[in-house]
Amino acid sequence: MSRQRRTLVPWLFILPGFGFLLLVGLYPLVFTFVTSFERYHLDTIYLGTPFVGFDNYIDSLRSSLFIGAMLRTGFFVLVALPVEMVLGLGIAFLLDRPRNDGLRAFTRVILVLPIATTPVVVGLFGALIFNTQFGVVNYLVGLAGIRPVDWLGSPTLAMVSVFALQVWQWTPFVALVMLATLATIPVEMEDAFFLESNSWLKRLRHIRLPYLIPGLTAAAIFQTAYMIKLFDMIYTLTRGGPGESTDLISLQMERLSFRAFDAGQAAAESVIMLVVTLVLSQLYIRFFYREPEA
């Protein structure tokens, strides 16, 4: 087989998907980029869309709502991700322990359910269980002697509620990823280690962690992207409120697009966010993730 042919063959496989994504994905991206330099109001589109240079970018970076939403999203990822990781790892260890086989198999099935639950619906039943007057969370908290609190009405507690539902839905994902990752550790490695030390913590650090890193990284990339995109669940739970206290980036941009109809600034914010996520994912991949080597 000639070298020429060898380089062409993979493209024959890749091109349909590549071309289709380009077709579907490129136009809106170019559109967004162009719009970000225009004054573009959807509701007064008939007045024209003049070029305004970097105005939209300056407005975005000076907008306390956008900066606030970015910082809030960053904070959310920084808190939720480690919690999901620790809890997920814990559940993975439970599932990996070689006893109670039936229960373990059942748990594995059950863990799939939160992941599969429609996020819109998660927000809906979230609003029910966190309701101040008749929510079951307040009832359970009340059993512990704590006065009913207004979960969705207080800025801090509303964020806690969003956070709790996010962790509920996606910790199982981390757990299942980690469970599979644990299985990649060669048995001999662990057995050899038993001969030298019986410290569980040491075993975790020296033997298991190196094997766990790829799984943790994959889960982290997946979850970071997911949380940056997080919209549906918060939309039905709090709509970003009260005030702007649960306004993550997607919610803020949705309101800018469809309540203020300011597509120009929304586009500028999008471009900024795109750069941020691409840099972030490159960093993740460079530092942790092994790219596919042939």
Partner: peptide, 22 residues
């Protein structure tokens, strides 16, 4: 006027923040 939806957004953003004491 046609700009009200934008003004409404501004009013409601800061109005809620004032109310929350932020």
């Amino acid at each position: 006027f046609p700009e009200w939806p934008q003004l409404s957004e501004i009013t409601s953003n800061w109005g809620t923040q004032i109310e929350l004491g932020q």
